[in-house]
Design a binder for these strands. Structure first.
Lengths: 209, 209
DNA sequence: GCAAAAGTGTTACACTTACACCCATGT
DNA sequence: ACATGGGTGTAAGTGTAACACTTTTGC
């Protein structure tokens, strides 16, 4: 009835800074895999929904709160975790690194952003989890302004395009991209331009609504 | 660590017969809710993936085996189940009722098909589960030949259209429907027609591949 | 010959894709 | 003046949506 199976949550928190995609990792302090960097995660509590557990765990480990988490998958290989069975529910969120103060708490020794393209082998199936989250993001990216969680409030369209290219891992046609996001009324142009660049200033845009 | 939280699977098994959508229910024999009709489901086992547990449970309860189950959701409200907490992973499958012999086993007193439009209040959150499965189906219906699991091997296009209308709960334009499924090479026409109808015979089609 | 279901084509609109040059600024 | 990234329009192709009449059979 009450099987000896643990249920945990893990979170892929993605950010965008200096033109690179980042993922938030914690340095573990306990068994298993102490001292290793991994996705923030922990067992769920008995009285919360899984999503609320994910929010709480994320806050306890990293200090991040009040963000929107989306469930993106379940990882249930019987041997994915050492010692005993743990089924993990994976959540993903996109945030602007500069808007959150990182506070390592609970069983995290450190918290920090890591460049996505430099991620090495992580414990358990966390590499698979990141890959899974990125695939989820690729599919969701055109639906509504998901990316306003990654971009600053005001941004030039080329920055937005760079981000789409980074996520989709593909070239995007400049003119078609502009037509699309403007005609779909995803973004609107402000009466303001970039300053201090080495070249022609660009109009700034913001997400609608 | 090993929290007293149960993990179960439930299955929405859908069929199509006599122009109606059907769902497979079992009559429960044990606590909780004995004697009530509900979706087939049970606790997962410690050594199987969740999906394999679902297949095993379905077979034990209904006799159905060798079918393709898709995970469509997780139901995790802390009080969805009486007495103690159980998180349930929901699977869905589409099958042809006439191709499976139903055998009530394990803790099922009976198994039988029920018309979807006559389903009353079921125990726990099983009504929500069915609704969730139907929404999933609405989204998946145009992707690949999902419905070849519901239709006979050979069928007239109008029957296929009726089924789409039933699932989507919407009118479909006859000509556009035919154009679409033929141009997408979903189906191909056979050199065979319906017989014994009261009207003009219709060409039979089959799913490609 | 008539009732009933089967079958068929065209046009308008929306969306996507491909493609190349001029513009505004800082140095 | 020139290097650098910013910015723009058009045409072809593809998919979707709306719409009404003729055909074939059983009775």
């Amino acid at each position: 009835m009450h099987l000896p199976i643990g249920i945990s949550v893990d979170c892929t928190i993605l950010g965008y800074e200096d033109g690179k995609m980042k993922v938030l990792l914690i340095k573990r302090d306990k068994f298993p895999e102490p001292e290793k960097w991994s996705l923030p995660g922990a067992y769920i509590s008995e009285i919360e929904t899984i999503e609320n557990s994910a929010k709480r765990v994320l806050n306890e480990l990293t200090g991040i709160q009040n963000i929107f988490l989306t469930q993106v998958g379940i990882f249930d290989e019987p041997n994915r975790y050492p010692d005993h069975r743990v089924i993990s529910v994976l959540y993903c969120a996109l945030i602007k690194p500069e808007q959150f103060e990182l506070i390592a708490g609970s069983h995290a020794k450190q918290v920090s952003w890591h460049n996505l393209d430099e991620i090495k082998t992580l414990p358990f199936d966390h590499n698979k989890m990141i890959e899974h989250s990125l695939n989820w993001l690729k599919e969701e990216i055109w639906r509504k302004p998901i990316l306003n969680s990654l971009l600053p409030d005001k941004f030039p369209l080329n920055q937005m395009k760079d981000l789409y290219q980074l996520i989709l891992q593909a070239e995007i046609d400049n003119r078609n991209f502009r037509k699309k996001v403007i005609s779909q009324e995803l973004v609107e142009r402000l009466d303001e331009k970039t300053k201090g660049g080495q070249q022609r200033p660009a109009f700034l845009y913001k997400f609608k609504e």
